[in-house]
Design a protein around this nucleic acid. Structure first.
Lengths: 167, 167
DNA sequence: TATTGTTATACTCTATAACTATA
DNA sequence: TATAGTTATAGAGTATAACAATA
């Protein structure tokens, strides 16, 4: 039962470098990717692709969008948007119609069925968040949210809350 | 110069769905990936691959590791660790030696040159962080760091600070 | 027979660029 | 000629599994 004095223990506890744990950026990336991984796994269980939820959420708010606008919003190449919409349209969660004012354009909108699915996804994501942020109490979570929003807005103007009325 | 009243404005401001901005998990993922993207771009400017910094940081602390341990720590398949180490060894930043106690093993360690490079990378990453977190004052940054560490530890035991002394 | 590190294969993802139809 | 959407091609990245050496 004596452990032989090898140079390297057979199963040392693998640990992240302390240097990296001191880096807020590293932690931010690691935790953020951790959440995203869990979220995508959850969505996949329900038969959804990575961008489905975002697209449905955008359409539920903005009503009707051209595909190029969706591409801008999602930060995605227009050619990739096609595949996402094909998949959503096949399941009748969104609709494409020609814009009568410019027949090159497709106007995309969410269907009633799409809204119902979105509502379910919302619930699922809410549950996942409650689980993920469980170690933080409500007040702390709120504080964290504020900080993240500040950073998000600072690095991407698309995140800015702002009423769209030009009035 | 009159704007024709098309159904969809030619260039609407693309904005992220409000629903998503209300989600802490979504913000966390987005900001985290944003930082990682910037960090990788920075490292690439210096001729470094994504895992180079982590590997050097681990070796600088833990001295000598078997490749399988590195794989565990990095959450990487052993076959991928090979390529990372090949690249680092070619540049003489790390060394591989056979473990005399078990000749199947390679004992990996950082070289003097590797330590110098690590020091430069450290500085670069520090600069990037200062830039990235600029909208937050020092105290707030510290608070954010604490929260992230709590979450990181909760979801991955490898993040736990713990003295390795079995004493 | 099991384990360490390595190499080879196959698959997925995605960026790019050609293509059509409209303007 | 330029733009919106689509399709096709090629390249990078990665997971998987076979492999050689050692235990």
């Amino acid at each position: 039962m004596t452990i032989p004095p090898t140079e390297i223990p057979a199963r040392p506890v693998p640990r992240v470098a302390k240097e990296l744990l001191k880096s807020s950026g590293f932690l931010l990336a690691r935790v953020g990717i951790g959440f995203k991984t869990q979220a995508l796994a959850k969505l996949e269980e329900w038969g959804f692709d990575p961008y489905d939820y975002s697209v449905l959420a955008i359409l539920a708010e903005g009503a009707r969008e051209a595909q190029a606008t969706l591409a801008d919003t999602l930060g995605l190449d227009p050619s990739r948007v096609v595949a996402v919409l094909d998949s959503l349209e096949r399941r009748e969660l969104v609709e494409r119609q020609r814009d009568p004012h410019d027949r090159r354009r497709h106007v995309v909108s969410i269907t009633a069925s799409g809204k119902r699915q979105l509502s379910r996804l919302r619930t699922t994501m809410k549950e996942l968040e409650d689980e993920f942020f469980a170690p933080l109490d409500a007040e702390t979570r709120e504080r964290l949210h504020e900080l993240l929003l500040v950073l998000a807005c600072h690095h991407d103007p698309r995140c800015a809350f702002k009423s769209q009325d030009p009035a």
